[in-house]
């Protein structure tokens, strides 16, 4: 995180030294773009907050542990698509799930959809990409996630 601050500061100082006018213009662009997209971010945050409430970690632990592997797989694809969490929370959670007997392919489905498919980020994505393209991109992401999960299942001997 500090690396990002340091990088931004360095770039900003270099830019200021090189050309003051251009730098002011850059900051104006930054502020303008940020303010225009901010409302979509607020909508997204509301959705994230509600999703996190509806899907706490205990629910994940219960749902993704294997009773029926295909049910777990479907749940993983669904929950991964809906919820949003940073990698430093998601992967330790996957580690816990693994210890409790979750299958690799289920964890693969969960982590891939987490990364590739965003239901709650859709309001922001729609602003940038348009609804149709956002939809197509997310469906493609879901299919890629499914393919990765199936291959993972094959490699780890969970499918056959």
């Amino acid at each position: 995180m500090y690396a990002v601050y340091i990088l931004t500061a360095i770039l900003l100082v270099l830019s200021l030294l090189a050309n003051r006018e251009k730098t002011v213009r850059a900051l104006r662009i930054a502020l303008g773009r940020f303010m225009k997209i901010a409302p979509a971010f607020i909508v997204m945050l509301v959705l994230v907050a509600v999703a996190l409430y509806l899907l706490p970690e205990q629910v994940l632990l219960r749902t993704l542990a294997p009773e029926n592997r295909w049910v777990a797989m479907g749940a993983a694809l669904g929950i991964g698509s809906i919820s949003v969490m940073p990698g430093f929370i998601a992967f330790p959670l996957c580690g816990v799930l693994l210890e409790r007997g979750a299958l690799y392919m289920v964890l693969s489905a969960f982590s891939m959809t987490l990364m590739m498919v965003g239901v709650v980020t859709f309001p922001v994505e729609k602003k940038y990409l348009g609804g149709r393209l956002s939809l197509v991109r997310n469906v493609a992401g879901l299919l890629v996630a499914l393919a990765v999960a199936l291959v993972t299942g094959l490699v780890f001997g969970e499918l056959l």
Partner: peptide, 17 residues
């Protein structure tokens, strides 16, 4: 709030440079 201001500042610099 911790990350986005940096992102947009870098985007602004990218835009002009």
């Amino acid at each position: 709030l911790k990350i986005l201001p940096c992102v947009f500042v870098i985007i602004g610099l990218f835009e002009v440079w």
